[in-house]
Amino acid sequence: MMNAIDVHMLIRLIIAVVAAMAWVGINALVLVYCERKFAGHIQRRPGPFEVGPHGILQPLADGLKLMGKQLFRPAGADAFLFWLAPMLSLLPVLLLFLPIPYGPMLTAMNVSLGILLILAFSSLNVLALLLAGWSSNNKWGILGAARAVSQSVAYEIPLLLSVLAVTFMTGSFNLSAISTSQGAWPWQWNLMAQPLAFFIYLVSAFGETNRAPFDLAEAESELTAGFHTEYSSMGFGLFFMAEYAYMVVVCSVCTVLFLGGFRGPVADGWWWFLAKTYALLFLMIWVRWTYPRVRFDQLLNINWKWLLPLAVFNLLATAFVMKL
């Protein structure tokens, strides 16, 4: 017999997953608009301007256009894997939002291993990109997939090491506990104690989310669109939404780990969380439209020759200082 607690948990989980879906959708719309508008202003042009006041309805129009297009599968592609890949890219994202503490009480599930849950399920994305590239039966696709994987696998290591440095300090994998262990004011945040880890996390986050200047996997000048060359309509739409969702997750985790999460001056709450997350997201957009794309050997050299040794050094130093 199912008792009341189980039913309660189940209902909570369902609500959380539905809320995560809505949150992913809203964020995709807002971020697409912001990205295009930012890109426009950075390049001294107005950006989208026609649909709605200041082009504010442009993402909706884009979405409708995307949905209206034909779903197309190239001949010789592995149909099962071809359609599995975009779903595999988006589905784990819905779980990633569960352990994130948006406010003191606003957590879908207070998981004691929250950060590990996020890291574990986000690793499925690499697999989705590989499947997409391979099953499209297209050389751009497979080259993009190969790049995406060697990049993601490489950048995951410094990312994990910088996260570990913070969990060393807090002694917990629980994101709520990590948030509350930090003070309200900026100088009480983990950013002050772990500036190097913050920097490493941020750079690795660009690598992990395949964002410029590290967007080698979909470098349009060389690979058309990389792993999603052959995807049209919502097949591409799902990858696109997953990419923006991963950006939000990465920035949310960064907020929790380094910027105090929902803690903030005057009053703690989700407003601080959202403000910090969106500040980081704008930083990501800003960087994308400021720096040119790096070369692939440069990309891997940055990781293996700089970030990885620095992250290991930072971890050892943290452990040493903690033991003192």
Binding site: L116, L119, A120, L127
Partner: peptide, 20 residues
């Protein structure tokens, strides 16, 4: 859950990608 997440992180995220 720790073992479960490690299973995902190591086997699904890394080992299977290497096999691929």
């Amino acid at each position: 859950p720790f073992l479960a997440f490690m299973q995902l992180l190591i086997y699904v995220g890394a080992v299977s990608v290497m096999i691929f």
